[in-house]
């Protein structure tokens, strides 16, 4: 595996299988009273967030702590970034602490790749602009595989604002890599020109939605609704909202959160048994533990370590 996780494109199918397997074994640890393992004891993980985040930042923090890493969280607001320090200088300053990993979120595409050029730490892209959010895609794969038992051959529909969604881009690549058939669907103004080249089909109505095994709804952001991308929220909801009428009883429902109730999803489907939305959040911690493990403790020699072996290591009494 590459030293950084910047894009789903950095991962082979084998890498993904290994990360998901590792996450399974961490799920076992999460079920215990003491949820901590010593894997990253003495190593430093820096969470550097240039953009607001609740789920991603908190789950990365928990993941690092449960691996016993020393954690430093830096948010742009209130830091030297506010004083006009450049990204390069900030990264070089933080790198002086010799971190093992930098988890980086930025409003700009490719920013995590730049950070990787300026530090010796492993860089994990926690969202770069509208480009990618690879750990979200991994936790979605993990959640779906646990529920459906497989990924190969599943028909996944990604519905909503594809244009502005990094989750959509990472998931088109990730679902495709694992053998799913991916269709994106949304109003033509919110489907990027040329998106087919990522390996998906494009629909502009939900007419064929019944063919989906999985419906992955995207968040409709308020600022987009204010723009001229859709004529009105009401019309958008009437055409693209996933509700009880449209979601079949054998279809699974996913959403990266936070949900706009009554816009992209109706209340009844959010709380339906087909919805995996809460499980997605739960999966965030173990999948991010698995990613940190792969990058910092995995490597080619230990890559063959099975989840079971790992679990036994974790079962030893730890001074956590």
């Amino acid at each position: 595996m590459k030293p950084h996780l910047l894009s789903v494109d950095d991962l082979t199918r084998e890498d993904i299988d290994r990360i998901l397997g590792r996450a399974e074994s961490f799920a076992e640890v999460s079920g215990r009273e003491i949820k901590k393992v010593p894997t990253l004891r003495g190593r430093t993980v820096i969470n550097l967030f240039y953009e607001a985040s609740t789920r991603t930042s908190s789950s990365f923090e928990l993941a690092a702590k449960r691996l016993s890493a020393d954690l430093v969280s830096v948010k742009a607001a209130g830091s030297s970034v506010d004083k006009g320090e450049s990204l390069k200088d900030t990264v070089q300053t933080l790198s002086a602490y010799d971190p093992a990993a930098i988890v980086f979120r930025s409003p700009h595409a490719g920013a995590a790749g730049l950070v990787a050029r300026w530090t010796r730490a492993s860089v994990i892209n926690a969202g770069d602009g509208k480009r990618e959010h690879p750990t979200q895609a991994l936790l979605d794969l993990y959640t779906l595989r646990r529920r459906a038992g497989r990924l190969e051959g599943l028909n996944v529909w990604i519905v909503g604002d594809v244009l502005h969604s990094r989750v959509a881009r990472s998931n088109i690549l990730a679902f495709g890599r694992m053998g799913c058939r991916v269709t994106v669907c949304g109003p033509p103004t919110l489907i990027p020109r040329g998106v087919e080249s990522l390996g998906c089909e494009v629909r502009t109505t939900l007419d064929q939605l019944p063919e989906a095994d999985v419906v992955y709804a995207l968040r409709m952001q308020h600022e987009r609704m204010a723009g001229s991308f859709v004529p009105s929220v009401r019309e958008y909801a009437s055409r693209y909202q996933i509700d009880g009428r449209r979601l079949g009883s054998n279809q699974l429902l996913m959403h990266p959160g936070p949900v706009n109730r009554g816009v992209e999803l109706s209340a009844e489907v959010i709380d339906s048994p087909q919805a995996l939305i809460t499980q997605q959040v739960e999966s965030g911690v173990v999948v991010r533990m698995a990613v940190l493990y792969e990058l910092l403790a995995g490597g080619p020699t230990s890559g063959s370590m099975s989840g079971r072996e790992f679990a036994s290591e974790a079962s030893e009494p730890q001074p956590a």
Binding site: K130, R131, R169, R193, G194, L198
Partner: peptide, 15 residues
């Protein structure tokens, strides 16, 4: 440029 690569990179394109 607006095209397949801007779609991949999630950056706004100039048609």
């Amino acid at each position: 440029h607006e095209g397949e690569i801007s779609a991949l990179l999630g950056m706004a394109g100039i048609p």
